[in-house]
Nucleic acid binder design. Structure first.
Lengths: 140, 140
DNA sequence: GTCAGTGCAAACCCTTTGCAGAAAG
DNA sequence: CTTTCTGCAAAGGGTTTGCACTGAC
């Protein structure tokens, strides 16, 4: 079962032009068997419970690589850190500025119509919709 | 004329609970007589042409203060720097990831419907819509 | 054996902070 | 005079980089 999962993840990587090394497999295992949203720091802590099996540099390199190769989506919601989302389908996000929690919103519960014409010489790269919420008790 | 503009900006600040000091006036002059989108760095360069009239700390403090008091809107589109927008009406943004250019999109050219229910105990703080574009010639 | 990936530590860069001096009321 | 603001320089924190070592094939 573990070896099967490994095989799937390795195939997934190869299908996206990524060489499945040991460290990338460990990171992919945490990311794609769990799914959700991860910062570099969160991912590193989950992979390296006690010992240091994957270095910080490799975590950053791998997240950037996975995002470039379409395995992850980069989410810019917080000026202090970048999040990566395992859901590569079109969807939006809800961000709690108090807790730092980030969650998906399906596209069908939020419809965007009449996208404006883009400036000449540019092509769309993506549309990000972020609903920011804060805790009700906030004194603000 | 200059003194009139000063008076307007001073009144604007006082109306938002901000004490109009010399440095804040200089920054407000650049921001609100020009309008648009500014990073801390861009603003500082425009205020301090040659000499250093306003310090970096004061630029950051003032941008944060203006945003908190509703004179500016903070825009998170780039993991490397925060932008501030002088347009405080509801609107969206178009961001060119190649050039770093940021421009407004009027809300009526992009309609969002069916906002989902928010998680219990949270209140909306704002909705950000960012259309990312890149230059057509990009090799990607 | 060759080329790509990894780890470590240092460098980077935007932003924030501590504190002494200056300015506003 | 008291309180708030400003400036400087140093610290902070996420991210990137340089380079020698290791691993994949």
């Amino acid at each position: 079962m573990v070896s099967e999962a490994h095989k799937d993840l390795a195939g997934l990587m190869r299908g996206h032009g990524i060489l499945p090394t040991q460290q990338r497999m460990m990171l992919a295992k945490v990311l794609f068997e769990q799914n959700g949203h991860f910062s570099a720091d969160q991912l590193m802590r989950q992979v390296n419970g006690d010992s240091d099996r994957v270095s910080k540099a490799t975590v950053y390199n791998t997240l950037g690589l996975f995002a470039r190769q379409g395995l992850l989506r980069e989410i810019i919601v917080d000026p202090t850190r970048v999040f990566y989302c395992t859901n590569t389908e079109p969807h939006h996000h809800l961000y709690n500025i108090d807790t730092g929690e980030l969650q998906d919103i399906e596209t069908d519960s939020l419809v965007i119509s009449d996208l404006p014409a883009l400036p000449e010489g540019t092509v769309a790269d993506g549309v990000d919709v972020i609903i920011r919420v804060r805790n009700d008790s906030d004194v603000n």
